[in-house]
């Protein structure tokens, strides 16, 4: 299968590969996917107290498109407020990387990773995040 130039570019020069220490209070970690499905993404976001994403790191087990999707996402979210980051749709990733239909699940995974990382950060902050939105768990409580 032929890959788009952008996928190849991200795959060859992935941005922001690596890990932050997981226990840092301002770091949210999202791990999505499963090894048996052939895709696991770990996205970490360093988020300021007022909810701005200051830095991002990823590690991905998956095909070239999965690696490229996560690499792109780390660039995309940097500098954004988490409220805005929560609205990022996978279609943005599909468009940017010219992903073919069989690779759309990679972009979905990347979208899920953003949400998972932010949710993790909120949990760590004890629901006192700067976002106006209340986490689900406190609503249910």
């Amino acid at each position: 299968m032929a890959y788009s130039e952008k996928v190849i570019e991200h795959y060859s020069n992935p941005r922001n590969v690596g890990s932050f220490p997981k226990d840092e209070p301002n770091v949210g970690t999202g791990v999505v996917g499963a090894p048996e499905c052939g895709d696991v993404m770990k996205l970490q976001l360093k988020i300021s107290d007022n909810g701005v994403i200051e830095d991002a790191r990823f590690k991905t087990f998956g095909c070239g498109s999965a690696i490229a999707s996560s690499s792109y996402v780390t660039e995309l979210v940097k500098g954004k407020h988490i409220d805005e980051a929560m609205t990022i749709k996978n279609t943005v990733i599909v468009k940017e990387l010219n992903l073919p239909p069989v690779k759309i699940h990679c972009s979905v995974l990347a979208e899920d990773a953003i949400k998972a990382a932010i949710a993790d950060w909120r949990k760590r902050k004890g629901d006192n995040g700067a976002s106006g939105e209340q986490p689900h768990q406190s609503k249910e409580a």
Binding site: G38, F61, G64
Partner: peptide
């Protein structure tokens, strides 16, 4: 182990 085959082929 820990490396997905298709991504390896791409590399």
């Amino acid at each position: 182990a820990y490396v997905e085959g298709e991504s390896l082929l791409m590399g």
